[in-house]
Write a protein that binds this DNA or RNA. Structure first.
Lengths: 165, 165
DNA sequence: GTGGCTGCAAACACTTTGCATTTTT
DNA sequence: AAAAATGCAAAGTGTTTGCAGCCAC
């Protein structure tokens, strides 16, 4: 059996995230500073979900000081630029790559708190059909399935009889 | 043309919300106090989405003082009891009826901020198929479509030529 | 009467903001 | 040189909690 993948394969995109960000900032007459470059580089260096605090901590551990204020300000920009997507699974906002990453939705295990991504084209079809029926012009969607993942199910339920044969 | 309905028709249920809440509290050895009864009565008196602040304000305006602390504590209980469902559309939590109300999902207009409910059975089928494919035991889901509603589309876009004929 | 509830105020956790200083173009 | 970004600390939000007195069972 193949190992479970939590993340999908990245898309191939022409511009690097930093380039994309620069274009966005240029249009708004804003600047690509070294703090912003540092943040984007770090964020797009791995494909995990993260929150503001993790970002501050990780960068400090790597010897780069970035103030919380700048992190929050930059995260907002990155969302506006379409580079990041904001998730509100809990009280604190989590972020994930949007640019260079395929559209997808999430399974959230309430037991181990793991988030697994999945792709399903029917969802888009359904979204558009429902929107049309309500005269909505859809711009996005979130499909979040909550439940218990395979590993946690196995760990928490008594061993099945067949396992013992 | 029929007017757009934001809310679905309530289900017919045997117990009143207060009764259901009483049962839940009894099991846990907790008490149905007058503050709790007041809150449940008020909440299930209308079918709108609301947040903690609105609850405090509405009740104060109606001459009933309830402390913020009690509101928050009771909201949590009502969610655990399965009477309310928590939505995280923004930073503050919003709540809606769960008990005595059909399963449904939401369209969120980012222009006027209105939330429209809809029912669609395919979603459930899709949810279960996707969960099965990932070994997940699903307990719930959220399907949120964001976009611009019909009214806002009309208000913000130039009148179409055909409208003038 | 006892254990759970309430209100108050203080504490919390996360995020935003005002301002003096630094950096970018 | 002008305009914008940064860091700091302070101020906001939204929510939770400790505790003394109160109420339902």
């Amino acid at each position: 059996m193949e190992a479970q993948r939590d993340h999908l394969a990245p898309l191939v995109v022409s511009d690097s995230p930093v380039e994309k960000f620069r274009e966005f900032l240029e249009i708004r007459g804003e600047k690509l500073t070294d703090r912003r470059r540092l943040l984007v580089d770090h964020i797009f260096n791995s494909h995990k979900h993260f929150d503001a605090d993790e970002l501050v901590r990780d960068l400090h551990d790597a010897g780069h000081g970035v103030s919380r204020a700048t992190v929050y300000r930059t995260l907002r920009l990155l969302v506006e630029a379409g580079l990041l997507r904001e998730l509100r699974l809990t009280n604190r906002s989590a972020y994930e790559h949007d640019y260079g990453y395929p559209a997808h939705d999430h399974l959230h295990c309430t037991s181990c708190n793991r988030v697994v991504e999945f792709r399903n084209d029917e969802i888009l079809r359904l979204r558009d059909a429902i929107s049309a029926a309500h005269g909505f012009r859809p711009s996005g969607h979130r499909f979040l399935i909550t439940g218990v993942c395979a590993a946690c199910s196995r760990a928490h339920s008594p061993r099945r009889r067949l396992d013992l044969i």
